[in-house]
């Protein structure tokens, strides 16, 4: 009996395995080629790096969101967490002594802490994370305004500015952070017990529980990771803008969730992965950038993004319907 080969897998299933692996990549490449043909500037290396740098801010969060969505959860509060952690970072930079260490570590801890609370309340209280994080979304937007007293905080130190604006050789530092997160997360999901259990819980929570997996702990951990990465995203954004902005991160939840879903991770949980999320985030970035280069009004970008998300979810639905269980 052949083991670890995919030769004997049924044809329909093989098609979807193929689609899962390359479908989104193909779509991404097609979109790139079209934009490149319409405007050659698109393929300019500087433009490419610019796109990836912009994507990094959303992408880092999307890596965390992949964990949460794989478990069948959702987090709407990420944008507000970015704003809150960002204003705290800016505060430590410009107002409370300018200590670099504190202005990096505290926002990360705050992000992780908020994620932990989201996970804790939704699992222990058996509430849908949609509603819990909808609450936190409002709470931390408000907290941001409260801390900032309604005014942005600006004036970061050069060292802090490196996080969002620095270059390592020709590559922007945020890009390194983003790609690093993708690689580590990919390894965690594929190679570690933690990762395998994420898929098991997302696929069938009850079977996972009966197999002795501490389901609640893993869920809380996933939310905590997402919160932590939202904190990291806040550092990049604040550093890049040289300011803690009150409206920072507004609407990020859509871009982040869209990246994950477009990347093929199922909203039902249990299927998908972080490499898909990477492509999903890049696709969104490329669409925005391409439309910009073509001189399309920015308003259209939102409309197009929304349509892409609906299309991605529709594809996921079709995939499930054609798979005979």
């Amino acid at each position: 009996m052949p083991v670890l080969s995919e030769e004997n897998v049924p044809l329909v299933q093989r098609f979807f395995v193929f689609w899962d692996k390359v479908g989104i990549l193909l779509a991404f490449l097609v979109v790139c080629v079209i934009f490149g043909m319409l405007n050659p500037v698109f393929f300019n290396p500087l433009n490419i790096l610019n796109v990836i740098r912009q994507v990094s801010i959303i992408g880092v969060i999307a890596v965390g969101m992949t964990f949460v969505i794989l478990l069948g959860g959702i987090d709407l509060s990420v944008g507000s967490v970015v704003a809150f952690a960002g204003i705290i970072a800016a505060g430590f930079q410009a107002k409370w002594g300018g200590n670099l260490f504190l202005s990096v570590v505290i926002p990360l801890l705050i992000g992780g802490g908020i994620g932990f609370m989201n996970g804790f309340v939704s699992t222990k209280g058996q509430l849908h994370p949609f509603i819990v994080t909808l609450g936190s979304m409002s709470i931390f937007r408000g907290a941001t305004l409260l801390v900032a007293q309604g005014k942005p905080i600006s004036g970061m130190s050069p060292a802090f500015r490196f996080i969002g604006a620095g270059m390592v050789g020709p590559i922007p530092f945020p890009v390194i952070l983003f790609i690093g997160c993708v690689i580590v997360a990919g390894m965690v999901l594929k190679r570690t017990v933690f990762g395998r259990y994420i898929y098991a819980i997302g696929g069938n929570e009850e079977a996972a529980l009966l197999s002795g997996i501490m389901v609640e702990r893993y869920k809380i951990a996933a939310f905590t990771i997402l919160g932590f990465l939202s904190g990291l995203s806040a550092l990049i954004l604040t550093s890049r803008l040289n300011s803690g902005e009150l409206v920072a991160g507004q609407g990020y939840e859509l871009d982040v969730i869209a990246s994950v879903i477009i990347g093929g991770t199922s909203l039902m949980g249990g299927e998908g992965g972080v490499y898909g999320t990477l492509i999903g985030a890049l696709l969104i970035g490329v669409v925005s950038n391409g439309l910009n280069l073509l001189g399309v009004q920015p308003y259209w970008q939102m409309i197009v993004k929304g349509l892409i998300v609906i299309l991605a979810v529709l594809l996921d639905k079709l995939k499930r319907r054609f798979r005979t269980v």
Binding site: Y199, A200, G203, N204, A207, L210
Partner: peptide, 9 residues
Amino acid sequence: KTQGLVLLL
């Protein structure tokens, strides 16, 4: 199906 296996895996 609902308690013993993760059918997707």
